[in-house]
Design a protein around this nucleic acid. Structure first.
Lengths: 328, 328
DNA sequence: CCAATATACTGAAACGTTACAGGTTGCCAA
DNA sequence: TTGGCAACCTGTAACGTTTCAGTATATTGG
């Protein structure tokens, strides 16, 4: 910048202001400065800006290293980076592990002022992280809604609609006794999913086969074993609704362990975030959820808040598509 | 830090030096300063340090947004973060897309001085990024080796061993006509894989069924279609070696599209980075490759170089485990 | 006892940027 | 003519850190 000032014969202050289109700089001067800046490839020094203004130009994605789905991590990162690609923002990934309080990484980011905006996942109805961030005035967006009467940006997939559509579909092909492999208890979308499931059950007059103690956070082996146990009982379900593709692999394995056949003895509707369940078993019924979209929406939301938009206007809910059987 | 200086009654210079165990500070003073620092929870301001020293405390992971495997992205990030978790380093993810020169993001990072160290993947035998980084003296590590006579840190999986073991295993169960679904042409490990494959073929006296134009970078549908075509020919292979789990799903689909049966008409050995292929088809033969390990090794390597270690001492090669059939 | 030296500490400057509090010029109205 | 004002520009300080070039005091060797 000093170089720019020298080259243009102006003061550094003028150059600084000219580069950000301040009103008190002559139009001609602005164009001149910006031209020279472009020519010599001037890039603002992030440390200088950050030290002076506190603006980090960083968005942090806070992830659980044990429980996030593989596809979630990959796709959400790509979604976020696609949006921030032509902004000065960088994406930093802040991990936390099972043993840690989920609030820890968030507190760290806020205390060290390491990010202008934060994206969190595994959102809870009463989420201490959201509360903390609101209290500290740090812009953020959550993947999943909260239920605290506080308003903040979020992106969510309509899991109520997913679960209820899944139940309706299964009922439509004659399935009457349904089991739900739900999201982890405690997370907001667990509630949404369970509600959609049970509401639709009573709507169509089907019944639930309890599978409560198992969630998609469990290991493949656990889910497989518990499914096999369940399927060996006389009152076994004839339909499953599964909230995650990886768990669906385990459910199918469990079904087959019990000597039953997918599509004949039982049907499974599963969410998936990439098109592979139909390669796995053609009989599966799938609903797509795009985590890349989630990443983009979340990035847009945080950037919006950072840029001064109303948090309440930065909320989005993505509707599930139809339940899809295999086609050709 | 000014606060610390005031509290201890020392000058800021002394505090700065005391905190980093400089030799010219009295032992007693050091302990005192460090105690007070701990008490008030002092954390060095990253912008201050970065502005003064140029040290960013950032490691950047450069990823292709189209062609990286899902599991690769997720696991490598977790591997890296696990290593840098108890260091002052942050991980930033720098993406680039199909249309871009892979050198672009690297150049950006170097020109803006945005990272102390860089991790790159999809390494080529003659890799312009590695050359560029060496020329500019920026520490980096590559996932995969180069072959330019230049020495730099890397982590690699021994794909020669993988491919040759796979061939030996298939030959051992009577397969004689093998096809290889190779990594993308141009990447170093394409060559390694192909060499391992062909060397072992001649060793065991089996023959290759060319499948050259297809690589794991292609879409699931493409691979599936091409496999089905191949399997409908009279000179079809009776064994496959596949370099990626996702592609293996497509190969199996293609095999079944052609009306053939896995394990009877044809066997497939595939790498996988998470334990799911055996849920998919029990007849599959798998070799595990841990991307989390790769991430950790790469992080250790860059940090080592940043810390002044010899680049040549920061190279690691991970040997594949055995070919594993399904068990219980 | 003095000079040399080691030990322990310090102020000022600098990294690149922006905000604050001006300064200069030219024009217009009184 | 002059005071006021708008338009445009500028120097200085500050953000938090480290480095440079010291200073002051105690210790040692001759």
């Amino acid at each position: 910048m000093k170089t720019l000032a020298f080259m243009t014969g102006l003061g550094v202050t003028t150059v600084s202001r000219a580069l950000k289109d301040a009103p008190e700089i002559g139009a001609e001067t602005k164009r001149r400065v910006q031209l020279v800046a472009k020519q010599i490839g001037y890039r603002p020094n992030r440390a200088g800006v950050r030290l002076r203004t506190g603006k980090t130009n960083v968005i942090s994605l806070v992830l659980n290293t044990e429980h996030e789905l593989m596809s979630f991590v990959s796709d959400i990162i790509y979604g976020v980076t696609a949006v921030i690609a032509d902004t000065p923002y960088h994406l930093i990934v802040t991990p936390y592990s099972r043993s840690q309080d989920p609030l820890d990484p968030v507190r760290y980011l806020v205390e060290t002022g390491s990010a202008d905006g934060i994206i969190i996942s595994r959102t809870q109805p009463n989420d201490p992280r959201a509360r903390y961030l609101l209290e500290h005035g740090v812009p953020f967006a959550t993947h999943g809604r909260t239920d605290m009467g506080l308003v903040h940006p979020y992106h969510d997939f309509d899991n109520y609609a997913f679960a209820s559509e899944a139940v309706r579909y299964l009922a439509g092909i004659g399935r009457r006794r349904l089991a739900l492999l739900a999201p982890p208890i405690g997370l907001t979308y667990h509630g949404h999913t369970v509600n959609g499931f049970t509401d639709a059950l009573s709507e169509v007059g089907a019944s639930e086969v309890p599978f409560n103690t198992v969630t998609i956070d469990q290991s493949i082996e656990q889910i497989r074993m518990r499914t096999a146990q369940l399927m060996r009982r006389s009152d076994r379900p004839d339909g499953f609704v599964s909230s995650a593709a990886a768990s669906t692999l385990a459910i199918v394995a469990g079904i087959e362990d019990a000597g039953l056949k997918l599509g004949r003895d039982v049907d499974v509707v599963s969410k998936q975030s990439s098109e592979f369940l139909h390669l796995f078993r053609r009989e599966l019924l799938v609903v797509n959820e795009s985590f890349r979209l989630a990443g983009s929406e979340l990035a847009r939301a945080v950037l919006g808040w950072v840029g001064g938009a109303e948090p309440g206007s930065l909320q989005s809910l993505s509707k599930p598509g139809e339940v899809l059987p295999y086609r050709g």
